[in-house]
């Protein structure tokens, strides 16, 4: 109960700040529009049958791109004002930090998919089948984005630093999120085809989400502590660079 309350407080705080500036939502939303337009330009000539096969890929590729963009920014506020260390020192469960960031990412991703899916429906007539089963569509988007955000939030905490190391986040993100994206891809395909096993696949994604959130919550603390206390433990983080400096000093100047 306490965990949920803390999570809710942190999430509300983040969302309130977001509502004030709308930075994440606006940039990610605009990026979604750009990607949709680019898909429309690239795949304009596809006929109906092929479109139906290509649309699941478009949906989830777009989510993957937008997600990487969002995740690099989710922890920025903490880093810029250095509130991460304060947050860690505060009597707040670390799990609550993870869950609140996960919730924020999820909100941004779902806002983007609210632009993405109708946009695709407008530009690609084959994807208007989406409208036939709105409940399944909403469940699918929530579950898929949740799984993606669960993995992404974990590593964004440690890696999305401001010093141009963001490439590494994408390098990690795409291989690790491939399973959940593949499941979502299959489910989208089945949604478009009206496959009878759609709900079975959706429940599989839900199970996978539970596993991913569980692992993410379990590993979050170690990753976060690695990122926040950069100069504490016995083997200090930059031991190798300090040792390199020591070596350089000891060699005769040339």
């Amino acid at each position: 109960m306490r965990l949920l309350r803390q999570t809710w407080l942190l999430t509300r705080n983040d969302l309130r700040q977001e509502a004030r500036r709308l930075e994440l939502v606006l940039t990610a939303g605009f990026f979604t529009l750009v990607v949709v337009v680019m898909f429309a330009l690239a795949f304009f000539a596809l006929d109906g049958v092929v479109q139906r096969k290509a649309i699941p890929g478009m949906v989830w590729l777009c989510i993957a791109f937008v997600g990487a963009l969002t995740l690099t920014r989710v922890f920025d506020r903490e880093r810029e004002s250095n509130t991460l260390a304060a947050l860690l020192a505060a009597p707040v469960d670390r799990l609550a930090i993870y869950l609140s960031k996960l919730a924020v990412t999820l909100v941004v991703l779902l806002t983007c998919s609210a632009l993405l899916v109708p946009g695709l429906g407008l530009l690609f007539p084959a994807s208007q089948v989406f409208a036939a089963d709105p409940l399944a569509l909403i469940v699918l988007m929530v579950l898929g984005c949740l799984g993606y955000a669960a993995v992404g939030t974990l590593f964004a905490a440690g890696l999305a630093t401001g010093n141009g190391k963001n490439v590494l986040l994408s390098v990690i993100l795409y291989p690790l999120t491939t399973p959940v994206l593949l499941f979502a891809l299959v489910a989208t395909q089945r949604l478009l085809e009206g496959h009878p096993e759609l709900w079975a696949t959706l429940s599989q994604i839900a199970a996978l989400d539970v596993v991913l959130i569980g692992v993410g919550a379990w590993l979050f603390e170690t990753v976060l502590i690695g990122a926040a206390h950069s100069s504490q433990p016995a083997r200090s983080p930059d031991a190798s660079s300090r040792a390199a400096a020591a070596r350089a000093r000891s060699t005769p100047t040339n």
């Binding site: 590494l168 590993l219 170690t222 690695g226």
Partner: peptide
């Protein structure tokens, strides 16, 4: 990540390996 990560990235890398 181990090779080019930011300082103290060995913990992140370890989390990645477990994952």
């Amino acid at each position: 990540v181990r090779e080019y990560g930011p300082p103290n990235s060995e913990r992140i890398a370890a989390a990645l390996a477990i994952f």
